[in-house]
């Protein structure tokens, strides 16, 4: 026989009523899915930012009648435009595309040998915009030198990438919301099961003067512990999968990341530890609401 009675008894018997198997496993699965959704959202945002930057900075300058004299009548238009670009500090990597490159560029629309069609092909210069302001003034400036010169930026592609990113992030947010709702539903079902198993006990301690706060608090504490453990396990299990997916996505992330095995967005490394805390908060809140609602049936 023990000499000293236990100081703190689990008088609601919640260790048995709210077992440490099914609920943590289900929450771990939810946490795993949430980690994947979060990683998807953050990775798409990171890649999109990089792609948008690349697309926006890319310049394609078309110079019609490249060998014709420019506005001054002294220099061929293509040379005049190239000279002007070289003097501009916000323009870098300017390069005249060879006729072969231009032919390859337009071959999907005009066939392999567009010269046969007798169409006048423009001179094409590729360059990179390194200025902080948008290159809005570049086109009019080159137009003065060489009438008809057209400056195209990657703004259209950047807008499309932005739309794609927004769409992916909305999908990830929807998945996270659904996962959170399913987790709350799982917790509510587990709590109601625990309440049903301990109905007599709860009725008794209610009659002995237990406050609703006491009863709901004990359930919430147990649920919080189980959801915290389950979500932590789910987040940890997600790590190798995320590392694998990161390695698969490395070629899209740029040359610096291709050899990085643990190629995960830095923000994810901060968000992942937050998952168990968010799951625990959902568990605590759901348990409190469920138990307090149930207790309303008692006088």
């Amino acid at each position: 026989m023990r000499n000293e009675p236990r100081r703190r008894a689990d008088y609601l018997g919640l260790r048995e009523a709210l077992g440490d198997r099914l609920l943590p496993v289900l929450v771990a699965a939810m946490s795993f899915l949430a980690a994947l959704a979060m990683a998807g959202a953050l990775a798409s945002a990171t890649l999109a930012a990089r792609w948008q930057g690349d697309a926006t900075s890319q310049l394609t300058i078309q110079v019609p009648q490249p060998t014709a004299p420019d506005a001054s009548g002294k220099t061929p238009r293509l040379d005049s435009v190239m000279t002007a670009l070289k003097t501009m500090p916000d323009v870098a990597d300017e390069q005249v595309m060879s006729p072969q490159d231009v032919t390859a560029l337009i071959s999907p629309w005009l066939g392999a040998d567009p010269a046969q069609l007798g169409l006048p092909l423009p001179g094409v210069i590729s360059a990179r915009w390194v200025g902080t302001a948008p290159p809005d003034a570049l086109g009019p400036a080159l137009e003065k030198l060489s009438p008809g010169t057209l400056v195209q930026t990657g703004a259209l592609w950047a807008a499309r990438v932005a739309a794609l990113t927004t769409s992916l992030q909305a999908c990830a947010a929807a998945i996270l919301i659904i996962v959170a709702l399913v987790a709350a539903a799982v917790v509510a079902v587990a709590t109601r099961s625990g309440l049903a198993q301990r109905r007599e006990t709860i009725t008794l301690i209610h009659a002995l003067g237990a406050l609703d706060d006491d009863i709901a608090g004990r359930f919430a504490a147990r649920i919080t512990l189980l959801t915290l453990a389950g979500a932590a396990a789910g987040a940890v299990l997600a790590l190798p999968v995320l590392a694998w997916l990161g390695a698969l996505a490395a070629p899209f992330a740029g040359p610096a990341q291709i050899n990085d095995v643990f190629n995960l967005p830095p923000a994810l490394m901060f968000a992942l530890p937050g998952l168990p805390i968010i799951a625990a908060a959902i568990g605590w809140g759901t348990a409190q609401l469920t138990v307090r609602g149930w207790l309303r049936n008692l006088p």
């Binding site: 009675p5 236990r6 008894a9 689990d10 008088y11 018997g13 048995e16 007599e200 006990t201 008794l204 301690i205 009659a207 002995l208 003067g209 237990a210 006491d214």
Partner: peptide
Amino acid sequence: VVYQDFRLLPQLSAYDNVALPMRLA
């Protein structure tokens, strides 16, 4: 309250059952 059917909590010892009202308070 003394109930007709005792209503002791089966998972608790005699000591803990008796201590319950005081712990709740």
